[in-house]
Design a protein around this nucleic acid. Sequence first.
DNA 1: CTAACAATGTGAATTAATTAACAAAAAAAC
DNA 2: GTTTTTTTGTTAATTAATTCACATTGTTAG
Lengths: 210, 210
Amino acid sequence: MKHLPHKTIERLSQYRRALLICLDKGQTHIYSHEIAKIQHITAVQVRRDLMLIGYTGTLRKGYNVKELIELIGEIIDSQEGINVSIIGMGNLGRALINYFSGKRSHLKIVASFDINPDKIGNTMSGVPCYSSDDMEKIIREKDIKLAIMTVPADFASQTADALVKAGIKGILNYTPKPVNVPKEVYLEEYDMITSLEKVAFYVKLNESAG
Amino acid sequence: MKHLPHKTIERLSQYRRALLICLDKGQTHIYSHEIAKIQHITAVQVRRDLMLIGYTGTLRKGYNVKELIELIGEIIDSQEGINVSIIGMGNLGRALINYFSGKRSHLKIVASFDINPDKIGNTMSGVPCYSSDDMEKIIREKDIKLAIMTVPADFASQTADALVKAGIKGILNYTPKPVNVPKEVYLEEYDMITSLEKVAFYVKLNESAG
DNA sequence: CTAACAATGTGAATTAATTAACAAAAAAAC
DNA sequence: GTTTTTTTGTTAATTAATTCACATTGTTAG
């Protein structure tokens, strides 16, 4: 397996989530078209993705749920687990902590940071909140590799700089401001306003068409 | 202009946001490579997108910031503005309301919904919170076209069904559960866990590559 | 005035992602 | 036991998105 397409990586993560639900329900096998239905994609797409990771199902029985979950884990997870931090304990930061808490996952949120003294020192869903001033120290101490940026837009740039300085390896930026990082730091940016405007655009298009 | 690529639509939204900031700073013109730098893409990409929407800049002066903002608006906005609702006033719902409040935008968040009696009747950043039981009624009354789903995963499916029944035209689903809607409803789904797992994967890849 | 430069605009080439088409084979139907 | 059905796996074709390469032309420098 050489280079998995970016889109395949995303889908593998999603397949796994769907598969875990199937597993909980006691389902042992699943067809490509069942996975496809859940994810709103085609069965060929699913089969191709699984082909790319070298998993083969059983003809007419489909794929073994448990095996597939494990294989996807081997591919996208890192063995040791990865420590994650959330920068900015506003509503979005809190949403993310709740979201992840209780999930069995190789990604562990081990710290959050804020500048608000009322928040510093608190613990939420088991995640302690530290002062942003101590960010570099704690990131190094706790061997935190990933950071999720949920600070206000005006702090985006300086936060990213501080994270890079602290030796972070990957950033997921949820602020609406694109940030700059050196190329050895993996950066993923997502902008909620863009998504909403996109939906609005296609709704408008549908209206004018139909 | 026939069919703008999906990716172009997303970028136009982002260009506009960047341009508005430039406008505020008093900048009247901007080069393709300046826009590109902000968005971490190439200048050719920017020029091609603008070509697709039929905007032409001035040689050696770049693009007129104000004009371009207006043109992008003409393309992606609908003239009358669009009413938006947020379903689920948890942390994520609140984050989104704050995010949008005070932004001059053709997208107006006019209602939010929740099942928690403590939240119903309150107003946040000018957005009233109604009971989910009244969803259909209020969506029709207020002519709400778009909904942002920020309910817990277990409510995803039933919420989507209710929205469709209420005649919603577009849904932005932030729950980790994919939902099904008829094809005349535009659906966009975003999953934070997938994004984080993707970052983790590429960090792992970078590590192992050296 | 002329040459060098710096920017846009775009056809052609490339790369990425998806879909079509179908062979293979196990299971079910008869 | 033969035929039909159903599902996987994969090559080839197609479509979508990006990048290359370069013509064009206003601007600046000399």
